[in-house]
Design a protein around this nucleic acid. Structure first.
Lengths: 146, 146
DNA sequence: CCACAACGTGAAGCATCTTCACGGTTGGTA
DNA sequence: TACCAACCGTGAAGATGCTTCACGTTGTGG
């Protein structure tokens, strides 16, 4: 097995483990990955109409409707009417939604710290750069085929 | 942002890109990730009853039924009766299934090569080790909470 | 021979996600 | 100013992946 394949294997394993880890954490606060993603966008970009959310999440507007339905049902967000355009409604985090979102950010920070502690301090930054380079390449590969 | 968070960000980005890349490649040959996973198990472990597949895929036997239904419908596998146990049927790759599976293996090898070429040759092996260490840690974290 | 275990699947349900169609709104243009 | 095309959100229908529960069929140890 070449080093490249070993690398790919390791990345795939990390991917799986990370995904599992995040999903269980999300489930603990009552969120699914897709809904958490939407909450994340609300945190970083503020209250928005569903169209804008659909663009940022790269899914269809119809799908956003369903995600917001669930988040609204569970009390994480509300749909506020937009006075300037009665077609659109603004999706806004509730207090509880903001709480949970803050928890997610904290969890992410903590996980970053735990990962950094696995390796010698000096190597973490370089590793981040290398992994970023890999990500760039893969994005390039996928984009080039577009 | 700490190095740990930068690393986590890079890994998450790589994860997303890699997943997209693989999904499009899979779709091109008529497979979904879950069905490809099942095909992969058949390649490495040979023809098996659905129970064994369920164990290796870490999903419920009921789910395997659906995956095999689809793969059988599309001509990638067949269900052969097992003479020694009439309850079970053995899931086996068809010629076409084996072809497609070989293609997947080749694609994986190629992707590994492409990733290796992104970085200086000397660093790939070390990177693979580091990423593997991260994967170990994340698996440990998830396992510890079990 | 019989109770219990194992194999696969029907039924029902949840989460993502898609496409298509439609109804209400806006906004710019004839 | 009337009008129509573009736009917002959502109903309907469907594909995929997963789960649990219930069942019928088959194997097997006592």
């Amino acid at each position: 097995m070449t080093d490249g394949e070993r690398l790919l294997d390791a990345v795939l394993r990390l991917t799986t483990a990370l995904q599992r880890d995040m999903e269980t954490g999300l489930a603990a606060v009552g969120l699914t990955p897709a809904r958490a993603h939407l909450v994340g966008v609300l945190v970083t970009s503020g209250p928005q109409p569903q169209q804008a959310l659909a663009r940022q999440l790269e899914v269809t507007p119809r799908n956003v409707t369903g995600l917001v339905d669930a988040l609204e049902r569970d009390g994480f967000v509300t749909r506020e009417p937009q006075p300037t355009d009665r077609r659109a409604s603004i999706v806004t985090l509730t207090a509880r939604g903001r709480e949970v979102a803050d928890g997610l950010v904290a969890g992410r920070r903590e996980l970053g710290g735990q990962l950094a502690r696995v390796l010698p301090a000096g190597r973490v930054a370089a590793l981040a750069d290398d992994v970023a380079a890999l990500a760039d390449e893969v994005e390039r590969l996928a984009g080039g085929a577009r």
